[in-house]
Write a protein that binds this DNA or RNA. Structure first.
Length: 640
DNA sequence: TTTAGGG
DNA sequence: CCCTAAA
């Protein structure tokens, strides 16, 4: 059985009786035009059958508007929730109705599904966009449309507003603090806890004593914001490109500044990973005095898509997951193009490479290289026959990519550069000589849950089940540690390492880089988020505890060894030292192909280094980093 | 195995 | 990044 999310704006499915209204929770006068999504089961013959109550996925916007300020997004007790404020900006109206128009009523055409998914993606896109906007704006007037709250239980809703205000002011306070080092631990903790709370609504949340059970608030990863403030706005296209590369580990040719900024911000935000079964995304547009005049706030929240909790079709789930997890933004910028998530070519290659080795006889298991071993595990997955969204049968294999169980098309390894002759031969069988990887990839969008018998996914599942265990020590530490943990972005990502695992999957042997150089064998560009994680780790556990950091912060980055971390730190340190007491000029020379590291990070590195006496005494000039750390014009950078 | 450092 | 010595 498949299940499809059916959008319903005009109550098409009223008779199904599942459109239970949770509007009792919202102040009626302020609800404008909620979009309700319902689950519809797709029978084998393609009929749509109204979902059962359990499957119902309800979407509702809860718009609290005191000064047009706050918007609460309520997710029903299950599944995906898309709220549409829909007040005046016709944009979403258009989108949603567009989506609806596609959907005939009772036939399962993939188009409909796609439309829906597209819509969801759109929303997600906006989410991020808004995120970006807000990040880039930076000033404390975020109070407008700032807090988005998602609650898991509808009956809790009435409690939310008050809490929100508290939280809101708290957050605003934080944001007013100029130094990036000023992130309060409290907020960090809250953030992380909130994340967990989403799946675990039974616990209280805010220490203020407010009865906030089942309440999930989501403040921003503050570091991202800082970063956005500091750099993005002032960057030239070129700089943005570099930053993009730093963030995603790959190049982009997009010229659109907005897009770049947005993507980068997204990358940073996304570095706060999303567990496969639980993720929260929020979306809002805020009225920027003078500037962008956006006025609507949307929220999307998908919760606990675990089987049983809500029976959202895997396809949909995967799309969402995929979206969040995904990284290749090229195709889905403005939603103009049909966007289909797919594993990156490189990722496919990588796995295929290993596989081909295995199939060709000897299983390569270098006891030394755990990376290889891990990859090898994946190759135990057998090919699986699948039907893609557009009905064509394709062959994929299940791969436990970060536990999301993404199915990767089964392809022969395709080289990024010029294909070898034998591959060329193979390609002849494909239309127009187009790379068959591409062809297959396009069709492969299916995703399934992790296989229980897959060692990897098991590991991941375990890890997911016990996030607290990992987090607990950390939280305790931060609580004590009054030295504020800065880079808040990590906070979210700390326990949820899933993310766009492959945004930069470039562990390629001697791959000719775009710039003509040759990359090293196992080089994998450090992304900004990784760097942030690293810095955070050092600040927490101290430089030298590489294996600790590796284990706790980079557990899902199998390709980063503790040695890598150490090396990276060494480089960072170098960069930070250079940055602090040499002229900006010298630094900018080195810029060749490496990516800029935001100065705040470097300052932080320096700071940590000094604290841990890693800096030669003669160099420890007293340079207060607190106040000037984030001057908006400060765009000097180090390198990744 | 993990760290530290040199290459 | 890789390699290795040392712990």
């Amino acid at each position: 059985m498949e299940t499809v999310v059916e959008g319903n704006e005009e109550g098409k499915f009223e008779d199904s009786g599942v459109a239970k209204s949770s509007s009792s929770l919202s102040s009626p006068k302020q609800i404008a035009d909620p979009v309700v999504y319902k689950l519809v089961r797709v029978e084998g013959d393609g009929r749509l059958v109204p979902a059962t109550d359990d499957e119902v996925m309800e979407v509702e916007g809860l718009f609290k508007n005191e000064k047009g300020e706050m918007l609460l997004v309520d997710t029903g007790q299950t599944g995906v929730c898309i709220s549409n404020e829909g007040s005046s900006s016709g944009m979403h109206h258009l989108e949603s109705s567009e989506g609806l128009s596609h959907s005939g009523n009772t036939e399962v055409d993939t188009e409909k599904l796609n439309a829906r998914l597209e819509y969801i993606e759109e929303m997600l896109q906006k989410v991020k966009q808004e995120e970006m906007l807000r990040l880039a704006c930076g000033s404390p007037d975020h109070s407008s449309a700032y807090v988005i709250v998602a609650s898991q239980y509808s009956d809790q809703h009435d409690k939310l507003p008050g809490i929100d205000e508290k939280l809101q002011s708290k957050i605003v306070l934080q944001e007013t603090v100029p130094s990036m080092a000023a992130m309060s631990n409290e907020s960090l903790i809250n953030q992380s806890r909130n994340v967990r709370e989403c799946t675990n609504p039974a616990d209280g949340l805010i220490e203020g004593g407010s009865s906030t059970s089942a309440f999930c608030s989501h403040s921003k990863p503050d570091f991202s914001k800082l970063w956005g403030e500091i750099c993005l706005d002032n960057m030239s296209i070129k700089e943005l490109h570099e930053t993009f590369k730093a963030t995603f580990g790959r190049e982009t040719t997009v010229k659109d500044k907005q897009w770049l900024k947005r993507r980068i911000a997204m990358g940073l935000i996304n570095s706060c990973d999303v567990p496969t079964t639980t993720f929260v995304i929020k979306d809002k547009k805020l009225v920027r005095k003078g500037k962008d005049s956006c006025n609507n706030v949307d929220g999307i929240m998908t919760q606990d898509l675990a089987p049983g909790a809500s029976e959202i079709d895997d396809d949909i789930r995967s799309h969402i997951v995929d979206y969040v997890v995904g990284n290749d933004g090229l195709l889905r910028d403005e939603g103009a193009v049909k966007r289909v998530r797919k594993p990156t070519k490189r990722y496919i290659e990588e796995l295929s490479e290993v596989e081909s080795k295995e199939y060709s006889g000897r299983l390569i298991t270098s006891a030394k290289d755990s990376r290889l071993q891990q990859v090898s595990l994946k190759s135990h997955d057998r090919p699986v026959r699948n039907v893609s969204l557009n009905g064509r049968a394709i062959v994929t294999r299940l791969d436990s990519l970060g536990g999301s169980g993404v199915q990767i098309p089964y392809v022969c390894r395709v080289r990024r550069s010029r294909p070898r002759k034998n591959v060329m031969a193979l390609m002849k069988f494909h239309h127009g000589g187009v790379g068959m990887a591409d062809t297959l990839v396009k069709n492969a969008i299916c995703v399934r849950g992790p296989q229980p018998n897959d060692e990897n996914s098991n590991k991941i599942l375990k890890a997911r089940d016990a996030p607290e265990q990992i987090q607990q020590p950390f939280m305790a530490e931060t609580e004590i540690d009054k030295q504020l943990t800065t880079l808040g972005a990590i906070e979210l990502g700390w326990n949820m390492e899933l993310k766009h695992l492959d945004s930069s999957g470039n562990k390629v042997a001697d791959m000719p880089s775009a710039k003509g150089g040759i990359r090293r064998k196992h080089h994998r560009a450090w992304t900004l988020s990784e760097v942030i994680k690293l810095v955070e780790g050092v600040s927490r556990y101290g430089a030298g505890r590489w294996s600790e950091i590796k284990r706790l912060a980079f557990s899902s980055y199998s390709y980063r060894t503790s040695v890598d971390l150490k090396d990276k730190w060494r480089n960072l340190l170098k960069a930070s030292l250079a940055q602090t007491h040499s002229d900006k000029v010298m630094i900018s020379r080195k810029q060749a192909s490496s990516m800029p590291i935001p100065v705040p990070i470097l300052l932080r590195v320096r700071e940590l280094a000094e604290m841990q006496a890693q800096v030669p005494p003669n160099l420890t000039t007293v340079k207060p980093v607190g106040g000037n750390g984030r001057s908006v014009n400060d765009t000097k950078c180090g390198y990744l």
